[in-house]
Amino acid sequence: MASRTFRIQGAAGIKPAFRTAYDLVTGLMRDAGTGYELVLRPLKSKRSIDQNKRYWALLLELSDIAWVEGRQYSKDAWHEHFKREFIGIEELPGGGQIGISTAKLSVEEFGNYMTRIEQWSAEQGWPLMAEEDA
C-alpha cells in the first residue's frame, strides 16, 4: 500500500481524519495482517495563490523577452528548466528525467526559488518585473 496523508486544518477536521485513518488501517490489518505507522507532524504550508500568480507572470514575461541561440521558449519550458536548475532532477522509469515539482516547496522556499529565477534572469540581461520596482 502506498502511504496516505490526511490533512487536518481545523478542529472540525480532527475527528473525520482520524475516523477515516482508523477505518483504513482496520481494513488493511484485517487483509494483510501487518502493522502500520501513524505519524503526526505540523502541516507544511504551501505557496500562496499570489505567489503562484506572480511565478507564472515571471515565466510569461521571460518567455516574451528572452532569446536563447536565436529562439524563444514557452513559459512551460522555462518552468521545467528552472525546476531542474534550482530544485533538482527526479529520475523516471526507463531512464528519463524531470524537474522536481515546485509543489513540494514551502512558502519561504518558493519565494527563494523565485528570487533565484529573477537573479539568474537579470544576470542574463533580462530583468523581470521591472515595472513592479518602479
Rank of each mutant, 00 (worst) to 15 (best):
S45Y: 10
E90T: 15
M1K: 06
I89Y: 02
L43F: 14
A122S: 11
L105I: 11
S121V: 06
H79I: 08
G27M: 05
A130G: 03
G35E: 09
K15P: 02
D50Y: 02
A17M: 02
E61G: 01
Q72V: 06
V39M: 11
Q9L: 14
Y36E: 04
G35T: 15
S45C: 11
M129W: 05
W120A: 04
I14G: 10
I14Y: 12
E61H: 02
Q9M: 10
E132G: 04
R47L: 11
G27Q: 14
A17C: 12
W78F: 14
G94V: 01
W126Y: 15
R19C: 13
I100T: 04
Y36P: 01
K75A: 01
R116H: 13
M129V: 07
E37S: 11
E131N: 05
G13S: 11
E132M: 08
F18P: 10
L40Q: 02
L105N: 02
E85T: 15
R4G: 07
L58N: 03
A32Y: 14
Q72N: 03
G99D: 13
L60C: 04
Y113F: 15
G70E: 09
G96V: 14
R54P: 03
G94P: 00
T34S: 13
E131D: 11
T34I: 14
R7V: 15
E108L: 11
R7Y: 13
V39W: 09
W78C: 01
R4N: 14
T26E: 10
S63A: 09
K44L: 09
Q51I: 13
W120I: 06
E90Y: 06
E118M: 14
E109L: 01
W120T: 08
M129Q: 03
G13F: 06
Q119M: 06
L105V: 12
W120N: 01
E91Q: 01
G111V: 14
D76G: 09
S3A: 06
Q9C: 07
D50F: 08
W67F: 05
I98N: 08
W67P: 01
E123Q: 13
G88E: 13
G96M: 10
L43G: 09
P16D: 04
G125E: 06
L62H: 07
A57E: 06
T20H: 08
K75P: 00
K104R: 15
A12N: 12
I8E: 05
G95W: 07
I49Q: 11
P42T: 07
A12P: 03
M29Q: 09
G33C: 11
L40Y: 02
F82R: 00
T102D: 10
Q51V: 14
K15H: 07
A11P: 13
G70A: 07
K44D: 07
R84P: 05
Y55S: 02
D23Y: 12
M129E: 04
G99C: 15
I98G: 05
W67D: 11
I65A: 04
P127W: 02
E37H: 09
I87H: 01
Q51Y: 08
L92Y: 07
I89A: 01
A77G: 03
I14D: 08
